[in-house]
Design a protein around this nucleic acid. Structure first.
Lengths: 222, 222
DNA sequence: GATAATTTTTAGATAAGTCTAAACTTATGG
DNA sequence: CCATAAGTTTAGACTTATCTAAAAATTATC
């Protein structure tokens, strides 16, 4: 089979993507974080870090955690672009629900052809955001990060529009679906309960009480 | 990751599909045929045949060639269904040419989700044939084989409509494209040259001379 | 029907990615 | 500021799918 000049395995791509996400989420990527995210053991991660380091895709010093090199980040963003475009396709064209797409997109996101993904992008009209509100990088890897705040960071009387989630788990997405807290929902903070930091929201003409946990993972634009 | 009860690797699926195609094309599948088709060595094929045999997916006796069991055939047809539906998608929705889709579809055809493929099928309106005229099995694995004849089997004055190809190589497909011998083309055999068995065709108001090689791989319905 | 040619299988090795268990670093808390 | 906990790495082993080289079986040829 004819392949590209630079081919990386499914596994390598997965590690790079995971490192990208960890770095974004917590400012750093450690062996244990990566192991937890990829559902492997720390020892396996260390092996792979050495390999990626030799290929100059990550900056790695023993016991010091890792960061992506420019090349590594490029690959990670490419995988994320594929993943998010496929999620968009699954939801918008094939009528999957937003909590059903992750696993399938995970597989689809590693199909190697760049031509395929660029044509898919065109077919769908160059969407800017995936079904969870995450930005889709363009074919040059560029995308603008949205300035979103967790509901837990709002004050009483603040108003926002739900545009993203901080937790992509099926359980959380199904909870939101059931509570009608889907993307685009406008909400106002009515009250913050001192005792447990839960938040009372006004949504259209209804009131809804959400836990601190939910408030932290519900992202809004003001 | 949650997977299916019966999971088979990418590689196993590929062997099963290859065995299916070999059996169809030549009535049997031998170690060397499979090795040629999968671009591996005979020794590797033997190893895999043992493995597939243990899993009861093929009937295998040393030195005797192989056939698929009912279960093996079911899997093979499933992979073929996926492959052909993706080819259809690539050509009809993403504007790939019919000679560009094989490799990409090869990768896509191994995405595990059955839900995905059934929804894709629905999205495209349950197509019956792929871009090369090959029938697409339905979700139960059923499909009707078309009764197609190679042009080399026609007699002078016979008329037919191009509905399939016996060679899926890029080179052959590009040749047909260039010669305007695409699916649906109506043709009549004007003359068969004794010397080299080449065939002179009447297509609309033009005459076209094709070699025996081409005539063998151009399939028509009468 | 014996020998040669072809095909297939066995034996042993390799590479990728993973694991467990043990050893080693770094961080933390009296 | 040392002892222990937490986190990370090394060592050695396993699995899958592949390979080459050599042996064995089958088929073809004279």
């Amino acid at each position: 089979m004819v392949r590209f000049v630079l081919m990386h395995t499914f596994t390598e791509e997965n590690y790079l993507k995971t490192i990208y996400h960890c770095t974004l989420a917590s400012g750093s990527a450690t062996t244990n974080q990566i192991a937890a995210a990829t559902n492997t053991r720390a020892a396996s991660v260390t092996d792979m870090l050495k390999k990626l380091s030799e290929k100059k895709l990550i900056n790695y010093a023993k016991y010091q955690g890792v960061t992506l090199t420019a090349e590594g980040e490029k690959i990670a963003i490419g995988v994320i672009r594929k993943h998010r475009l496929w999620e968009y396709f699954l939801v918008e064209k094939l009528d999957f629900k937003w909590d059903e797409v992750h696993e399938v997109a995970e597989e689809l996101g590693h199909i190697s052809s760049i031509e395929l993904i660029d044509r898919l992008d065109k077919f769908m009209g160059y969407p800017k955001y995936d079904p969870h509100g995450d930005p889709i990088p363009d074919s040059n890897g560029r995308f603008k990060r949205q300035e979103l705040k967790p509901v837990s960071g709002l004050a009483v009387n603040d108003t926002g529009v739900v545009l993203g989630v901080g937790d992509h788990s099926t359980a959380f997405l199904q909870y939101l679906e059931k509570a009608s807290l889907t993307l685009g929902t406008k909400l106002t903070v009515i009250e913050i309960i001192d005792y447990d930091h839960s938040v009372v929201l006004q949504i259209a003409d209804k009131k809804l009480n959400i836990s601190r946990e939910v408030a932290k993972n519900l992202l809004v634009a003001l």
